[in-house]
Every structure is written in structure tokens, then in C-alpha cells.
Design a protein around this nucleic acid. Structure first.
Lengths: 223, 223
DNA sequence: TTGGTGTGATTGTTCAACAATAGAGATGTT
DNA sequence: AACATCTCTATTGTTGAACAATCACACCAA
């Protein structure tokens, strides 16, 4: 009788549920602030409350979901403070990864493919795809540091940021302009000038932050 | 009938169980490689299997515990690779935090108190206390970056590292020599020379890494 | 309006059950 | 003895039902 809504994978456990919810999250099916009822969501995914609760724990740990004791779990509503924190982090991590990277690191290839995919998405006006590719580009930058733990951490922060992007309108304006700037960074890096690449990236991130904060303030006047 | 072994806190949930296990972990009551049976540990802590499982999820997410599907959860045995990764990370994060810190940052005070506590511990030959204070010192360095997320990440990595220290003998040699070096770093920093402080810290961490890896190799010849 | 008070819905936690799996031991073959 | 195969068993994976604890809200009194 088990594993109905989630198709039966042999290997994994109800951990698949976590992935499933994550997917609903980045696809915007579940929006920030929304309450995730244990019984309702459990029924929808075809799992029991206990299993769902386990999944919630992981998601809460990643910050995608917020647990208010005795009240339930809610899709995290990114605060202005958290956005500022995330961008501070990104500058801190990405710029140094770029600056200290060994030349010819294989991640350069991943950066290049990410840019190409972003271009594809832009042509199709698929801004969600552009956003994903964009994040892949930055994840590649982080991977220059060759630290699995740092990669995992960045992946987590990205997901949280993704949540914020999802709650805003004007996706084109948020993602579009950065495709070409990614390319500039890559060119500086592969041209053997990591310091210059880091400087470009720093400006890039600061501008991106301003844009995001402005959009946030516009869409959430209450805050 | 609930909440027996774990004394009944009114506000929190079986999440207390996570803290409890964490405590057992850093105190060395639970050693790396050990299997954590759901029924046994559940009985010992006075919680049900389901509640315990929820706690396991969080711990696994922090890397303190490793989940092998259908086989159970085990206290993580830090690998050589993970130690190398952790030290790479520490150099990456701590040195830059120090380098970019604003002068007169309040965390300087926390660094100073940590050093004093480490000295106390050293006098009492309480090497576990020295290790804790040492970590507090480095956490203070990270907090110079003013990023809650980075702080949380570092706390997590520290706990994992702590696990590794716990499995080694020769605690005095691992912790003792660094108390004074912490002071040198602090002095350089408060003397207004962050670059010098970062350089000192870098050497410090590299030496600490060598010592740790050597001890690890000695105690785990199999690896 | 302000301040209780009950009431219903949801979470927190336990328990008992069963399916699924890995590992150990037993069996049999060469 | 070495090896593959086959039970068998203990443990995990997951469920559903139960009940206690807690919160949100409507209702009512002053």
C-alpha cells in the first residue's frame, strides 16, 4: 500500500518527499508564507504524516521552510535582512573563490555551459530557466574552491535565494541583464586575470543585490 | 506518558533530543563508527522511534551522523578527505573574515574572552575545555564577517571537526600550542594590521592541519 | 471596545503493526 | 577447504490510529 503519489523508487526512502517538495518550491507551486498542512500535503504526496514530518525537518534545516512550534511549517518568506545576508555571503565566497582559483580549473567548462544554457533560455523567454542557469554559473564559480562542503552550503543558500526570486514579478529584469555579465567574468578569468574577474563579479553582485532589493521593496511595501 | 528521560521542557519539542545526542557526541559518549539503534537509543532517551528519527534527520544534515539506508545511522567517522576539506574551508573563510573585518568590531572582545578561557582550561589540564574555547575563538573570527548564515555554517563544520578531535589521543598536543598563537593573531588584528593577522592565521591553520592529519594517520593506520 | 471562555482544528508524540531489506548463518556442491 | 546459494532473523522503513497539548477564533459578558 505504500508509495503511491510518489512513484516507487527502489533505492531511496521517503526522503524523495523532500526532493518533491523542493521541486514544488522552486517551481513556484508553493509560495512563501503558505502554510503546509501535514494532513493535506501528506495526502497530496501519498505519504503519512510521520514521513512528511521527517522531510520537513530537512527542509527546515535548509531554511526553505520555517517551523513554528505548535503552529505548523510555512514556506519561508525571505526577509530583507536575509537577502542582504545572502548577498554579503555571495560576495564573500564567490569573489574569493574566483580570486584564488587555480588557472585552467575544470569548473571553467561548467561556467561556459551554464552561460550557453542561459542564452537558450533567454531566447525562449523562459526566465525560470535563465535563473537556473545563472545559479549554475555561480555554483561553478564556488566549485573553483574545490570544497564539497562549501558547494553544499552554496547550493542551500541558492535555494533560499531562489525562493525570493520566485515571489517577485519582473523576472526578465531580474535575470536577463546578467547573462552577458557572466560572460565578461568568465572571459576575465580565462584570460588569466582572476583579480579582474573578482572585481567584475563584485560589481555584478552589488548591482544584482540592488535590483533585487528594489523589486522586493516594490512588491512588499509592508516590509 | 511522554517526556521521561528527557526532562519535560514546556516550550520545545522532541527537538531537544537532537541537542541531547549532540551533547553525547561532543562529550565522547558516542564514538565515531558506532551504530545508533533506533530502539535502543529511543529507549535510553525516553522517546519513540518516530521522534528519534526526526532528530536523526537533523543530525545527518549536519554531518554528525551518517545515514545508510536500510542499515541505520552511524556516528560519522571523519575521513582524511573530510579533514582536508574542513581545513581548506577554514583557511578560506577565517582568513578572509579577518582580512576584510572592520576595525574595532565587537567580535574582538569575544576573541579575547575565548583566549582567557582557553588559558584557564590549560591550567586545569582540561583539554576538552581548551578545545571548546579554541573553537569559540575561531567562531568569533568568522563572526567578523557579520553573516548569520556563515556563522551557522561554521558552527556545523566545527562540530564535525570536534568529532575528529574526539577520536584522537594526545589532546594536549592537539590543543595546547594554539592558545598563544591565538593571542598573536588577536594582537596583530587589534594592532590594526588585518593582513598580517590573516597571514599568521593561515600559517597557524596549516600547522594545525598537519598536526591533526599526523595524529589521525597514527591512530588510524588502516586509513 | 475590552477581556475572558469555550470550542474546534492542528500539531506533537506515542504505539503497534507490517513490508522490505541487509547480513549472518546454514546448506549444499565441487 | 572454497564457493555459491538459500533461508532466517533482526532492524529499518512506513503506515494508520490514537490521544494530549496547544493555538486560533468565534462567542459572550462587562
Amino acid at each position: 500500500m505504500n508509495r503511491q503519489g510518489v512513484e516507487g523508487r527502489g533505492r531511496a526512502l521517503g526522503e524523495t518527499v523532500g526532493d518533491e517538495i523542493r521541486r514544488l518550491l522552486v517551481e513556484g507551486e508553493l509560495v512563501p508564507g503558505q502554510r503546509l498542512s501535514e494532513s493535506a500535503l501528506g495526502e497530496r504526496l501519498g505519504v503519512s504524516r510521520n514521513t512528511l514530518r521527517e522531510a520537513f525537518r530537512g527542509l527546515a534545516h535548509e531554511g526553505l521552510v520555517t517551523h513554528r512550534p505548535n503552529r505548523g511549517v510555512f514556506v519561508t518568506t525571505p526577509s530583507l535582512a536575509s537577502l542582504v545576508d545572502i548577498y554579503r555571503l555571495r560576495r564573500f565566497i564567490e569573489c574569493q573563490a574566483l580570486r584564488e582559483a587555480v588557472p585552467g580549473h575544470p569548473a571553467g567548462q561548467r561556467m561556459r555551459t551554464a552561460i550557453e544554457q542561459a542564452r537558450d533560455g533567454r531566447e525562449r523567454q523562459d526566465w525560470q530557466a535563465v535563473g537556473s542557469s545563472n545559479m549554475a554559473f555561480h555554483a561553478a564559480i564556488v566549485s573553483l574552491a574545490d570544497s564539497p562542503r562549501l558547494d553544499a552550503f552554496f547550493r542551500q543558500v541558492s535555494a533560499e535565494l531562489r525562493l525570493a526570486f520566485g515571489m517577485l514579478s519582473d523576472q526578465e529584469w531580474l535575470h536577463g541583464p546578467y547573462v552577458e555579465r557572466n560572460l565578461h567574468v568568465l572571459e576575465a578569468f580565462e584570460g588569466g586575470d582572476p583579480a579582474q574577474a573578482a572585481t567584475l563579479l563584485e560589481q555584478y553582485l552589488s548591482q544584482s543585490e540592488r535590483t533585487l532589493l528594489a523589486a522586493y521593496a516594490r512588491d512588499n511595501p509592508a516590509d
